[in-house]
Design a protein around this nucleic acid. Sequence first.
DNA 1: TTGTATTGGCGAACGCTGTTCGTGTCAAGT
DNA 2: ACTTGACACGAACAGCGTTCGCCAATACAA
Lengths: 245, 245
Amino acid sequence: MTEIPSPPWRKARRPSAPRTVLSRDLIVSTGLRILDAEGLDALSMRRVAQELGTGPASLYAHVANKEELLDLVYDQVLGEIQVPEPEPGRWLEQLRELVLDATRVFGAHADIARVGLANIPTTPNALRIAEGQLAIMIAGGVPPKTASLMVDRLGLYVCADAFESSLYMNRQRTSGKDVESFLEETFGQIGAFYRALPADRFPTLVAHVDDLVAADDRERFEFGLDLMLRGLASYAAEAGPTSKG
Amino acid sequence: MTEIPSPPWRKARRPSAPRTVLSRDLIVSTGLRILDAEGLDALSMRRVAQELGTGPASLYAHVANKEELLDLVYDQVLGEIQVPEPEPGRWLEQLRELVLDATRVFGAHADIARVGLANIPTTPNALRIAEGQLAIMIAGGVPPKTASLMVDRLGLYVCADAFESSLYMNRQRTSGKDVESFLEETFGQIGAFYRALPADRFPTLVAHVDDLVAADDRERFEFGLDLMLRGLASYAAEAGPTSKG
DNA sequence: TTGTATTGGCGAACGCTGTTCGTGTCAAGT
DNA sequence: ACTTGACACGAACAGCGTTCGCCAATACAA
């Protein structure tokens, strides 16, 4: 039968893509783009497929399932984290810098932290970072057992805090307001809520409302981090006072 | 018109439930039961409704949406956590006991921690616990600002650790094996994985495999907790050495 | 006692999700 | 030139949270 010529407006749809435009990397980078632009909830197999001009079934030739896709996206994000070479004299500072860089990256990619929390770290970049942390601490004289535990706990803390932050970021995005006025409004509401509590049942809370709502995200994170690092330093000092903090 | 008599086999369907068998409390306790028995993923509106012999739409007369239902279930769980009266001389021990009791309760109710992580704590029992923590620390001489930050960070840590544990528990439940053999197998696999890593890229990891896989859940949690408590003690000591640890 | 307003129960449906099956089609290997 | 194998992908399945609209039963007013 006579071929109906494609109407010109159809041409833009799949211009020069006869086949094999799909690949693992393309799917992963598309997923990351959606994640950054619209958040983790918007990152569905259908959404990725749509972005690539195809159906969801096509993705399964390159990716086992959604969990694997998320793991790949997560590892890609972890790739942005910089791991320094160990300098024994600066081990505590180096560890701190590494962790801060991790939260910077997590912050840049909104709620990828939700994936990281649910992950046993065995992907290449997760291993690279764990190796870096462990090397820094052991070079600094931290006992290996303590350092091993510390790698685990630091990873958990970073992911958990980034996840909590991402919740607020999502609320802010959903609200449509800009960051400043959203934060001001939210903290105002929480403060008012605490102030309105019955003082007979919650005397300590109402007495310290200002302290409770004062801290911003960054200050809370760094407080927790320094808490852990001070604790670590005390363990290291106990084991052998060769290392300097 | 003449009422058609109910055929006898219909009688068992809703035996003595003419109306108003549903209530908020009943829905919440049913949700908690499903959560404990089958996990958070099984806790759907449809599943709760089915358990109560009705359809999902019926629940929305008592509960705004699923999020509210989960919040209510979460608060119910928090109600099991015991908060002691402050004894200034034992403030650090008391704080530790409170946190340990919280993880005991979270452990008993599998993956409710996922809900707690995603929650700004404003429910009654969350307030009760926050009040208790704050009162203990301030009675012990911790500066209010520091104590406020500590409440926040401890809550995050407890939820995050419980969530991580729940992941393993779910895997174990899905696998069908008993706890012991599952853990043995899993740790064996992880150990083998680390040992098989290329030693040129991950020298520190492969050198300390035994330390990395040695710790169980409980030890990891308590290590992180003591890390934070030691850090807190050092803050408290800086502010004013009136308090004793 | 009768009439009415309100509330809760609930079947059906909407739009979404991850995933699988079967079929089609193109490209490379023999 | 023909076969083979890998990938593309439309359609469908089962399940999700939520909403709509109707029905029945209760609570209250007259």
